[in-house]
Design a protein around this nucleic acid. Structure first.
Lengths: 336, 336
DNA sequence: CTGAAAGCGCTTACAG
DNA sequence: CTGAAAGCGCTTACAG
């Protein structure tokens, strides 16, 4: 039985094949300038010994690790709650990384200690680049890493000044289309349940609502949630207290919209007859709510893929645009 | 602006502090045998230069990477579908790894090429150990890595002979309790929707059903699904064709149970009056189905945590039991 | 096309 | 307690 620490090295392969370590290295790395007979002798020796290059040794000289970190500044519970947002991001990133033969290191944390670990890990050059999803507030870490020369791309337009390239979706355009749809269908008291106001997604969606309402004579009616189902249910209750006559609500996430629907139903309002509801996300399940949810579709999987693609370009030394904004789209179903 | 490749090395710190590299290394790694004045001089230099040890260089000599791989032999789409199984495993693993200050490398793949990458990556010693979740059929990779001396722990009792330590739940005990519950409540024609028969979870749950029925005079009525909602709906339809009089069904996963409920409702059967339904998993959503689902609870988060704990023990050179089996428990709600 | 040699940035016996 | 030196396992100019 072979031991853990007796794995064959380049040296062993070179000896068996009767060539130098340099030559073995060239063959293993597919350099074209090795003569055919030597090449196959080396291949045989590699095969026979089951040689696999040591990653650390290779990284030390090439300065590459072929892996990248995806940082989710959230607790793992949040990341893997029933909200499919993060899973979709991970899924999209993973697709592109697979295609590029890079590995994915997943870092989830919402603690200060965890964040420090992220910093140490990434600046120790364990990874070739770092992706941030869904940062809260003004997050200094992406900028810091970027200044250290580390390839970084973030998801969502950063709050505050930042030179870090980002990928985002057109929150405002999507929300305006949603609110316009409510206006066009004759709704007069249009409320909103906004997302957390320390995140761009929360801020921009509220801004979109306000912007579209501004053109009409309707006043705004606002409650704020945190993107969870429960917060949507609670916020809906508040809105109905604020304005029992409201006849429409734009909700800044599908999950909150589900919560809002539960509340409306409990209070005996018909959807959409009494109150029209529009969500934001277009999660799969929103097709199956009762009634099916009218919502703004944002391409989350594609967002993940684009993040990864941009980062791979930065790593390859290519120029990337400072921002990529993916389109959103109103999907009309039965709830509004 | 500092450049990517100009990060300070041990050498630089040593020069600034006026000591040898060995001493800096000792201070950085917290060795106790460095005199206090020197220690603080080194600390200052580290601070001033923003020194972070290079991970590859360190790994090369220590043979440790402080990261471990979690291999999910499934497509990313499957892992991040609406099935919360994998997310919970990841969550549990991540919790324990965080506590141990190790990083998580996530590898998802159901392609041959992908599997080869997993093999190369892990045997290249990119990670200190490997966790496998939910293998299909007789999977040779865990055993191979184990024989190479790589720390490995798998989730689910391996099919075929294997010396690799595993963590599993008590499928059979849980299923027997479920079927017994159906028998005790006077059900006479008890069908089952089994899981995939190339996975231990599928095989054992069917075995538990058969074992418990054997003690009674009931015959078995079996359909097979693949743990998805859709397959549950289809299988339920088949079962009702096979035996229109059936009055109970044990379904080997909650998601399939949800599918079965949809079918039963479409065909006008009342639950539990006409047909009692029991699931397996106890996902959160199963509390909210109509009616709330009676099901066998398996501790998935804990399974993930235990996997990580066992692996960390193996890595630390401790002895671990060849198998850890976590208990399952029948949770009676309204559906049966 | 091939090899000898330097070097990537650390850790760790070994001496003193 | 501290340092000089060897060595971890590779890659890559540089010569030839």
């Amino acid at each position: 039985m072979s031991q853990a620490h007796e794995r064959p090295t380049l040296e062993a392969v070179a000896r068996l094949a009767g060539v130098s370590r340099a030559t073995v290295s060239r063959v293993v790395n597919g350099s074209p300038k090795v003569a055919e007979p030597i090449r196959s002798a080396v291949r045989r020796a590699v095969e026979e010994l089951g040689y696999i290059p040591n990653a650390a040794a290779r990284s030390l000289v090439t300065q590459r690790t072929d892996s990248i970190a995806l940082v989710l500044p959230e607790s793992a519970s949040r990341v893997f709650s029933d909200d499919p947002f993060f899973p979709s991001i991970i899924h999209g990133v993973s697709q592109e990384l697979d295609a590029a033969d890079k590995q994915l290191v997943l870092m989830m944390t919402n603690t200060v200690g965890g964040y420090e670990r992220v910093e140490r890990y990434t600046t120790a050059r364990h990874v070739d680049g770092v992706l941030f999803a869904s940062t809260h507030g003004v997050d200094p870490l992406p900028g810091q890493l970027h200044r250290l020369g580390m390839p970084v791309v973030v998801s969502g337009r950063p709050l505050g000044r930042s030179a870090v390239p980002y990928v985002d979706v057109d929150h405002i355009g999507g929300v305006r289309a949603a609110v316009r749809h409510l206006l066009d269908s004759g709704r007069s008291r249009i409320a909103t349940i906004a997302g957390p106001q320390d995140m761009v997604a929360g801020i921009d969606r509220l801004a979109g609502y306000r912007a579209e309402l501004r053109g009409s004579d309707r006043r705004s009616i606002v409650a704020v949630g945190d993107f969870t189902r429960e917060s949507g249910a609670t916020a809906m209750r508040q809105l109905l207290e604020d304005d029992p006559q409201l006849d429409a609500v734009f909700v800044a996430s599908d999950l909150m919209a589900h919560g809002a629907i539960t509340t409306l139903r409990e209070l005996g309002r018909r959807i959409p007859e009494d109150v029209a509801v529009v969500g934001f996300d277009d999660f799969d399940i929103s097709r199956y709510t009762d009634p099916p949810l009218t919502t703004v579709r944002q391409p989350i999987l594609e967002l993940g893929r684009e993040l990864a693609r941009q980062l791979l370009r930065v790593i390859a030394g290519e120029e990337v645009p400072p921002a990529v904004v993916l389109p959103t789209e109103l999907v009309v179903r039965a709830s509004a």
